[in-house]
Design a protein around this nucleic acid. Structure first.
Lengths: 300, 300
DNA sequence: ATTTTCAATACCTTTATTGCATCAATTTGA
DNA sequence: TCAAATTGATGCAATAAAGGTATTGAAAAT
């Protein structure tokens, strides 16, 4: 990448002798003489005074030496940065997240990624599912996290984890005394459902589970996000079936209990989506971190 | 000077199409494709994603585009500066001056030079003759001004101007009433002589003039510099024969008068000296200004 | 005065670069 | 749906650039 003429010029300037510089450059003396002449012609400036002992820089040559060394370092820096960018180690990654997803898994992934790729600027955007797909297509984001994602022709997805469901229940509720709560309880109590957003969503999931259990849920409230939902549980509005990661959300008067008797589909996935044709190094390195994270989960 | 690979890369990045870029570069498409491949191999980074409509920059490619444009501007700036240095328009000029030389001619030359070559940093050093020659040989200065310079094998000199001599005389002296003072007055009054320094000097010159006039001068004082000499004239120590340029030195009680009857050699030169083998653009451009100045004087 | 030490030149060889023709893949237009 | 058009990639021959060997010419050292 560095122009040959500069390498040659710097060698001659440092050796103050064309023959010696040629030896250092592993070429013979005549071509080096010619290259220096050529450079002088291109610049229209005499860079060296030829002396009986060798050559010495003119004033302009001395200036050009400084400039040449500067050019070389600029080029080196540029190639190095480009190579790091090519390996996904330098750049910017726009990630869309959604309300409750941020609670447990995503922070861990982001932390791992940021440690592995400290020079990638990670920018988070809160978007719901439909917005994420639109933003992906418009290239405003590189990757989006969400649940219940369905494949599209131009959007690929990758599963991060599948979480078991837990019951958020007010500590004063009679069932709160039990460690494991039978599934039929869902049919006998009002439920707080979330999120009200793009279908299919987690509300549909919960309703399906209830149907599989043989009843329709009694809906106490439908709210937009998991925090509001748990807050309502705290206020005694009913029960709420939440993904495992929501357990880390502690609110006064709310306890989480595992359930028995749930159907097999009573799990909720967390996936990420990205443009199917996006093979950029930054995205690939991020997906790699996601896959490693998923593999790590399997072992625990 | 700018690497072909960068020119090519930038064209392709801007056209987003190899064929179109090739047209712009006045080459055919295949070699451009190959040069881009070669660049990608050198960097070890994919710079473009090939699409059915053309090419598009990868993230690393987009970064490299910015870097490449930066490299080009650094190189352009470097060549431009080097060329200016080659024309003597950029750099540093160390000039030695001496006591009274600074009074009239040298400031004018310096002013002209600084206007013509504003980016040359002019550094002045006050030195007497012997010091100037030593400093020239040691390359601490590029040029020195002085009077009564003699040629040396390694030091060339160039005449700036030849000044007529004037008489500095105390305004209370009887002759001060005359506009033109006859030369014999020098033999009838004590003289203040300067400078006491490297021989031959201006003192020798004045003594020779007196001998040519047929007498030996009565020396009142020998002092180091013209200002001290004029100050002594001001105090009534005697007369002082000064170069024309000293007239600009106004001291209370001192008037300057032209003289009649002086011999032909009653003139004092001002020259500059420089290394005989110094053909640097900066020195040459300075000498050119000196020659122009001398030519201008002739016309006035 | 001769040898040595430089850079420069002449002449040839090797390596890069380019252009032409063509291919393979994909999109566009009928 | 199928042919035409457009895209970048590849093979091969021609050209341009760079390099090597031998030699020259000038100046310095011996």
């Amino acid at each position: 990448m560095i122009p040959r003429s500069l390498t040659y010029f710097i060698a001659v300037a440092e050796e103050k002798n064309i023959g010696r510089a040629a030896k250092r450059l592993n070429i013979s003396q005549p071509p080096l003489s010619r290259q220096i002449q050529k450079l002088e012609n291109e610049l229209g400036v005499t860079l060296f005074n030829r002396t009986p002992k060798g050559v010495e820089l003119t004033e302009a040559g001395a200036l050009f030496l400084v400039e040449a060394q500067n050019i070389c370092s600029v080029i080196d820096r540029a190639t190095e940065r480009t190579q790091r960018a090519g390996k996904g180690k330098l750049g910017r990654l726009d990630i869309a997240i959604f309300g409750s997803g941020i609670l447990n898994n995503i922070p861990k992934i982001l932390l791992t990624y940021k440690n592995a790729y400290p020079d990638v600027k990670v920018v988070l955007h809160t978007m719901e599912k439909a917005e994420q797909i639109e933003a992906l297509r418009q290239r405003r984001i590189n990757v989006g996290f969400n649940r219940l994602l369905t494949p599209l022709p131009d959007i690929s997805f990758e599963l991060i984890t599948t979480e078991k469901l837990f019951l958020a229940i007010n500590e004063n509720h009679p069932y709160a005394k039990q460690d494991i709560i039978p599934a039929y309880v869902l049919g006998e109590n009002p439920l707080v459902l979330y999120p009200t957003g793009t279908r299919p969503n987690y509300i549909d999931k919960v309703i399906n589970i209830c149907h599989d259990l043989g009843f329709s849920p009694l809906v106490s409230q439908k709210v937009g996000d998991v925090i509001t939902a748990i807050a309502l549980v705290s206020s005694g509005f009913g029960l709420c079936l939440v993904p495992e990661s929501a357990i880390s959300l502690k609110l006064p008067g709310v306890v989480y209990r595992s359930m028995s008797g749930l159907p097999d589909n009573a799990k909720i996935d967390l996936s990420c989506i990205y443009r199917a044709n996006d093979n950029s190094a930054i995205l690939q390195s991020f997906l790699e971190v996601c896959r490693t994270y998923r593999a790590t989960l399997g072992k625990d």
